[in-house]
Design a protein around this nucleic acid. Structure first.
Length: 479
RNA sequence: GGCCUCAUGGUCAAGCGGUUAAGACGUCGCCCUCUCACGGCGAAAACUGGGGUUCGAUUCCCCAUGGGGCUACCA
């Protein structure tokens, strides 16, 4: 059994899209599941589209997401170079071979002629004009330095079909394919040529890529066949959509992997979530680590219809990871976000973190949850009203001074002590626990929703601040 | 326009000729409770339409409709 080798072959044209990452993830998972190798190759044959820094983003993203490649530009390997722009001589060599084999030919037509060939519906149909040039004519033009491209020689008749692991049998008539350009006039290959040469030379056994290549794959097979090479297995993936009509893309301002991480989505959750977009495990378990995904992955779980990226579900999953994270792990990742809070540095860091840990799905939510600690506005009396607790401003007017007195006597101002003191106050005054606790919490925070109960908030604020706020709130009610 | 391809709740998604058509997110309700959250329980919510094939179609075939892709010296 031949070793499985998959590859991820992005173009360094900008940020890492979620769709790209998922393609990489599946290629990685499949290789790992099969005990094979995962390779990174950079497809940078179009100089016009190159974006500075994009290569580093690719490296960083794969590393950050945990998708370690066994071979690649920065890690080496026996099949390099892994950057297409460094393989120009190789493509030249194979283009010549393919021409000799009759699978391709030189084309000297200028752009004007090609333009004139354009059909009614924008469909260009090259007329194989240069295919009919004699050997002598070709040699003559070559010697004279006439600019040329190399075109694939697609048969006029017949059709090409192949078996895709997710889409089944795909058949395309040769008459619907054009004699596409393999080598551009600048000597660089197009994707249509380079992917075939590289995948073969690099020993790729399973080609995993987007479904946009579904209908051009028969062209590639023609080349594999012409060279006498074994065709790889094909696994085409449906796109990830932002809605029913548009693909998720950076161009539309949609979130990239880095954007999501920057917002504080737990990165394992991002990887986990996109794994579920187009693939489903045999079991009903959805929360899975990367290594669990490696074990569970199988081609039969791949779905062929486009999937819409659903941020609420990713949020949920991120929240699940946060709740399950250790305090240390949470602290390490949450700290940069906590530092953006006005409360940072003024309260016990561990308390701040623990109070917020079960209450956020993404780290970005942290500052807003804590702002009340530093921003204490006048309490809206209406907030004291709670039907279930049977409390209102009048109750608060009585409870607050008593609570302040009870708490001022406390030596330990921790959650448990404060809670005990307030509950016993309720008992002494014949009130429901909720009446006291609700009023105190409102007085302490001036807001309806808080990241914890009255006693938790008191502990966080500390004795001095708590008493001051209680006093201020009580006084406001007198007036 | 031509060609390829897809089609189960709002979203992800199981199903692969006979099921009360899973599960998850979200939504709503209830419980727990010092608010929120967590947790627990429950509810509403789907097979695009029309023809076939079959004793029987969500499932197989055809057509229609709708979506996506390709049709570049982009990948």
């Amino acid at each position: 059994m031949k070793e499985v080798r998959t590859r991820f072959a992005p173009s360094p044209t900008g940020y890492m899209h979620i769709g790209n990452l998922r393609t990489a993830l599946y290629a990685y998972l499949f290789a790992k599941k099969e005990g094979g190798k995962f390779i990174l190759r950079l497809e940078d044959t179009d100089g016009k589209r190159y974006v500075d820094g994009a290569v580093q983003i690719i490296y960083d993203t794969l590393k950050d997401a945990g998708l370690c490649y066994d071979e690649g530009p920065d890690v080496g390997g026996a099949y390099g170079p892994y950057v297409q722009s460094e393989r120009a001589a190789i493509y030249q060599e194979y283009a010549k071979k393919l021409i000799e084999l009759g699978g391709a030919y030189y084309c000297f037509c200028d752009r004007e002629r090609i333009e004139a060939l354009k059909g009614e519906n924008g469909a260009t149909r090259y007329d194989k004009h240069c295919l009919h040039l004699s050997k002598e004519e070709v040699a003559e033009k070559l010697a004279a330095g006439v600019p040329y491209v190399v075109r694939q020689n697609i048969p006029a008749e017949g059709s090409g079909s192949y078996e895709d692991a997710v889409y089944g049998t795909v058949t395309v008539d040769f008459k619907d394919m054009e004699d596409g350009i393999l080598l551009k006039s600048d000597g660089m290959p197009t994707y249509n040529f380079a992917n075939v040469i590289d995948d073969h030379l690099m020993g790729i056994t399973h080609v995993i890529r987007g479904s946009e290549y579904l209908s051009s794959t028969p062209k590639y097979n023609l080349m594999y066949d012409a060279f006498g090479w074994e065709r790889p297995a094909y696994i085409h993936l449906p796109p990830i959509m932002k809605n029913a009509h548009e693909k998720l893309s950076k161009r539309n301002g949609d979130a990239s992997y880095q954007d999501l991480v920057d917002k504080g989505y737990w990165k394992e959750a991002i990887v986990n979530y996109i794994a579920l977009l187009g693939w489903s495990p045999k079991s009903n378990t959805e929360k899975m680590t990367l290594s669990e995904l490696e074990q569970a992955f199988s081609l039969s779980g791949l779905n062929k219809s486009p999937a819409i990226f659903d941020e609420p579900k990713l949020r949920w999953l991120s929240g699940e990871y946060i709740k399950a994270a250790s305090a240390e792990e949470f602290r390490a990742r949450a700290l940069p976000f906590l530092q953006k809070s006005k409360a940072y540095g003024k309260y016990d860091e561990d308390k701040l973190l623990s109070v917020v840990k079960t209450r956020v799905d993404i780290l970005e939510e942290i500052p807003a949850k804590l702002d009340f600690l530093e921003e204490y506005a006048a309490v809206d009396p209406a907030l004291y009203f709670n039907k279930k607790m049977k409390s209102d401003a009048a109750v608060a007017a009585e409870v607050l001074p008593a609570a302040a007195e009870a708490l001022s006597a406390l030596e330990n101002f921790d959650n448990a002590s404060v809670y005990a003191a307030l509950v016993s106050l309720a008992q002494q005054t014949g009130r429901k626990n909720g009446q006291v606790l609700w009023c105190v919490r409102i007085a302490l925070t001036a807001q309806e929703n808080t990241p914890g109960g009255a006693s938790e908030m008191a502990e966080l604020l500390g004795k001095e601040r708590s008493l001051a706020r209680l006093a201020a709130a009580a006084q406001a009610l007198q007036a």
